[in-house]
Write a protein that binds this DNA or RNA. Structure first.
Lengths: 141, 141
DNA sequence: GTACCTGCAAATGTTTTGCAGTACG
DNA sequence: CGTACTGCAAAACATTTGCAGGTAC
């Protein structure tokens, strides 16, 4: 998987494991915290360097979900063309997939003389709970 | 337009003018530079504060276009539902609009129990020039 | 005249980098 | 064994904030 002139160190192994240990999105800082909770010994610099490598290799996706710092989406390799709902209240992220959207995206892209590489679709929306109760279960405290 | 308990100062006027002086996307820092080139006298803090206000007011859109820092899209008020092509080589951004996509997005969103608020669609792609010549005219130096 | 606003500079937070020591292969 | 990698701490950025002084209304 990675033996392409790169060394497989304990630290990189840990970062990669933590990256794909969950399907949830995460930030670089939260992954570092996760690694250390797992009693792993890894520096901040190595986490950032390894994440950058995974993104460049196409195994991980960096997405801007409206929050302050960029998030990483570990499900990108499995389903390269999924989109994200982001709740305007609780910030909860739900992934979705729609073949019709994909097709239409391809058509539009080609009409404009482009050749699609990666698609990033975010929809800010309110979830059911928010509309009904005015607040999300997940919200804040 | 803004007299809703907010004072119309010279600085705010300048930032708003610069924001909508072009249809190009920009960052907070580049707008600050732009303001100062226009011999305007405004502080970094005021630029950030005014941009945040415009975004909250729905007159400006903050978008993550894959670059390091977030960009601002001044065309959001005119066409709230447009998407962006971002060239993988030269980073050039081209806006597009497609009603079919809009419709499909609405359907998918509702199917998942959400109510759409804002849609952000970015497509990373290679432009004609890049595919033909292997490099974009706009690229780098 | 009084809030609200600005500008500065410091604080905050994130990501990158130089370099000496470490360890994979 | 040599070279790539790590960790540290500092640097480089981007953005926010506290506060003293300024200004729109």
């Amino acid at each position: 998987m990675r033996s392409q002139s790169m060394r497989l160190t304990l630290q990189r192994r840990l970062v990669v494991e933590m990256t794909f240990a969950t399907r949830d999105h995460f930030t670089a800082e939260s992954l570092l915290a996760q690694c250390r909770r797992r009693n792993g010994k890894v520096s901040r610099a190595t986490v950032y360097r390894t994440l950058a490598f995974l993104v460049k290799a196409g195994l991980l996706r960096q997405v801007g979900l409206g929050q302050q710092s960029p998030q990483y989406d570990p499900n990108f390799a499995d389903a390269p063309r999924h989109g994200h709902f982001v709740c305007v209240d609780c910030q909860k992220v739900v992934e979705f997939h729609d073949p019709c959207l994909d097709v239409r995206e391809s058509i539009v892209t080609k009409e404009h003389g482009f050749s699609p590489k990666r698609v990033s679709l975010q929809i800010e929306a309110s979830c059911d709970a928010f509309r009904e109760k005015g607040v999300c279960p997940r919200r804040a405290g």
